[in-house]
């Protein structure tokens, strides 16, 4: 019987361990100088977030969308673009784009009907293009009516796009081509042979287009410099190893940055790829990269085990750590507001 009472005691004691989680609540008032950090969350969890990092006081407001709208942002927020005082958030597995007020993160409207949207590119003529993972097409969106008004057939996984010399250049992760779209007719007009698996591209201070292709197991990754007017590849840099991603540029557009198991920087005037990283990744695997166009500060996210909050490292332009903080699960991109 003594055993029995001992057991009962154990059971009662065990009930004293709290399983109630810690809850942080906050309200969204977004300062004028800060960084939106898009957190993908997990596929099918519906736990995407936007965190806001105030550059001045280094404070983080997590999940500003939920506090402003009292609802969930969606499933797998992929990217975010600031345009005309509004934030366009592409939510991949919800098949939608949410348009937010940049000051309050309040939802103004949303655009539905995409298959698996990835990136948003405003064209300045009242329209925008949206690339897609599975649709084998780019969607044409009318921004005033917030609706899809057309599609541009493009086989494969289309990713980042750039408006350069009046044309739109489209990366495709499932091909060796950089596609060119005529924005007046919304038609695919040409393509340029590049490395396999392009995902990101940047325009430099000289008006040249840089495209980063990640390659695959049999094809090496490449960085190409393209003349957007003549559509000629002017320079090719072949990577010895790795699958580099996230090509970014600084405010003056004279340096390029990318992730390849560490942060690498290359001047647009360089004639060879850097051999050593500017910031070494150590044991972690960097997931997202952003360059503050004003200060040149480098933001890198470490997604840890991918089911917990990411750690964001903020370095100065020389690669010295300034600050680190937590942000939403699988933080993948940075959007600078100034």
């Amino acid at each position: 019987m003594r055993f029995f009472s001992f057991y009962c005691l154990l059971i009662l004691l065990s009930a004293c361990v709290k399983d109630t989680p810690i809850v942080n609540s906050q309200t969204a008032v977004l300062s004028s100088n800060g960084v939106y950090i898009v957190g993908e969350g997990n596929f099918n969890f519906g736990n995407s977030t936007i965190s806001y990092y105030n550059i001045g006081d280094q404070k983080v407001q997590e999940d500003v969308y939920r506090s402003a709208n009292n609802s969930a942002l969606g499933d797998v927020a992929q990217s975010m673009v600031l345009f005309n005082g509004k934030a366009y958030v592409v939510i991949n597995n919800s098949g939608a784009i949410k348009v937010l007020d940049t000051a309050t993160a309040k939802e103004l409207k949303h655009i539905d009907g995409f298959t698996s949207p990835r990136c948003f590119l405003p064209l300045g003529n009242g329209k925008a293009y949206v690339s897609d993972l599975y649709a084998n097409a780019i969607s044409v969106v009318d921004l005033s009516s917030s609706s899809i008004v057309g599609t541009i057939a493009c086989a494969g996984w289309t990713e980042e796009m750039a408006l350069c010399a009046g044309k739109v250049f489209v990366c495709n992760l499932k091909s060796t081509q950089l596609y060119i779209v005529d924005i007046s007719t919304d038609k695919l007009v040409d393509s340029i042979a590049i490395g396999y698996g392009a995902s990101s591209l940047q325009e430099d201070k000289n008006g040249k287009l840089w495209v980063l292709s990640g390659g695959d197991q049999s094809r090496a990754a490449q960085l190409q410099r393209i003349n957007p007017i003549s559509e000629v590849v002017e320079a090719v840099f072949v990577f010895e190893s790795g699958s580099p991603q996230h090509l970014k540029t600084n405010g003056s557009r004279d340096s390029l940055y990318y992730l390849n198991n560490g942060v690498y920087a290359i001047a647009v005037s360089a004639d060879a790829l850097p051999k050593t990283p500017m910031i070494s990744a150590g044991n972690s695997i960097f997931y997202g990269l952003g360059i503050d166009p004003q200060s040149g500060d480098i933001y890198v996210s470490d997604a840890m085990d991918y089911v917990q909050k990411s750690t964001i490292y903020r370095y100065n332009s020389k690669g010295n750590l300034r600050h680190s903080f937590k942000s939403g699960i699988n933080s993948n991109s940075f959007c600078f507001k100034q």
Binding site: D19, S284, D302, M304
Partner: peptide, 19 residues
């Protein structure tokens, strides 16, 4: 820890109710 600074150390596994 599975990576540096892993905040899952000492925490309950996901989808295992304590009670």
């Amino acid at each position: 820890a599975s990576t540096e600074g892993d905040a899952s150390v000492g925490r309950q596994l996901i989808y295992v109710p304590m009670y």
